[in-house]
Design a protein around this nucleic acid. Sequence first.
DNA 1: CGCCCTGTTGAATCTGGTCAAACTAAGTGG
DNA 2: CCACTTAGTTTGACCAGATTCAACAGGGCG
Lengths: 244, 244
Amino acid sequence: MVPLAMQEPACAAIECQDCGFYRIGLFMGLDSGDTTLLDRYVKKKHMLKRGQVLYRAGEAFTCVYAIRSGSVKTYISTDDGRLQITGFHIPGELLGLNAMDDKRYNCDAMALETTSVCEISLDCFEALARQIPSAHYQMLRMMSKEIKLNQELMLLLGKKSAEERLATYLLTLSRRFALRNYSPTRFNLSMSRGDIGDYLGIAEETVCRIFTRFQEEGVVTTERRHIILNDLKRLSAIACEPCH
Amino acid sequence: MVPLAMQEPACAAIECQDCGFYRIGLFMGLDSGDTTLLDRYVKKKHMLKRGQVLYRAGEAFTCVYAIRSGSVKTYISTDDGRLQITGFHIPGELLGLNAMDDKRYNCDAMALETTSVCEISLDCFEALARQIPSAHYQMLRMMSKEIKLNQELMLLLGKKSAEERLATYLLTLSRRFALRNYSPTRFNLSMSRGDIGDYLGIAEETVCRIFTRFQEEGVVTTERRHIILNDLKRLSAIACEPCH
DNA sequence: CGCCCTGTTGAATCTGGTCAAACTAAGTGG
DNA sequence: CCACTTAGTTTGACCAGATTCAACAGGGCG
């Protein structure tokens, strides 16, 4: 078994054509020669159209999904139709892992746009995990990271003004794009204003109003879903981020 | 390595006098004969007074803590002093695990009352985990469970009215007590009104106002921190819980 | 070309926050 | 044991930010 405190494994240059697995932390421990493993274990490939559902809360936990392209939102909802989006997920991310506790998905997952995912059955996933010594440890890290993100979202939902929420959101996106070598200041959103509102805990209309306010102040430029961040410093000042 | 889908291990009747480890899922795979393991690995015992800090966000991840008695709140905060409580933790729970990703605690942990914890150094914890085949898997389950709880809190923070928030909170407490064979309808809170507000994303005053409203309607009876839930059905109707 | 979905803006309303003050319980020290 | 301090709780008055409802604009797609 691998010690818990092991160093971050170097990112082996492995690529599964189907899934972009090479980007997924979990599989970074794999040696290039093991690429065939992926092909052996990754069975199905799915294509989802905008609005199609990958899984629903309460369904039995049978598969893990790796996003290959596109994007997915996960959300939970009340009986009377209110919903809270818990995350937007992009290529390279793994979905479904947090059904591990009670063997049922605890949220819905829906494609935001045309999205391609690899479905990995639980059996295959376990077999794959057994082949990779650090797999469990990597999974722990992934979940630990998700918990950290969730806590920051809780701070946002519990204590921030609408303006701070949107600024925080734009900055988070910016950094996420930067990590993937996309422009941190110019990007297209795959989610609607309504989705942003359902993620930030504010009304769609409020999202719009604050976008226009930011635009009037010159902080951002928006053209429907195309966003340009003109002043990251300013945005960061507005966002009021958690201190560490 | 243990298959991911293994059954919930039977709760072995093991008790570590120091830590109440027998209650912690992680160690339920241990055979009774292995009790000495615990004594070997669990080094320090800490006593905290109300308000004392166990660890702070940003500090290096060196220890995991098992709560033996008392209770602890974890929270993250902004530079300007606003804070969001992310959880209240009670005996048998393990604290610090979600520092696994970046090797730093991502929140503060503070005792709500006189609290006794077992400190387990990371080295010891790893060694202990190596002795227990299902340890990593149990940790995954624990974190998966935490993610699920966090998501429910997000729904509450993002979409619920103050009344729904408090009702949800009281019900959650009630169930938590019931699981431990305490009365689900009569209990004492270890947290202040302010803490409840900082957890539910509402002001202390609002918490008070809604407590009195509930009391006027006969749903609960409160006497400072002593709470009696008179009508769980009603409370549940108010709470508007997530559907599964 | 026209429909529908998304986004935007305005006006009225309201929930919950803020500020201030009174009150209670529990210590604390002389 | 009592005066005094402190922390926690409760209530009231007022206000502001955000929601709701409604109308409308503009793109994209059939």
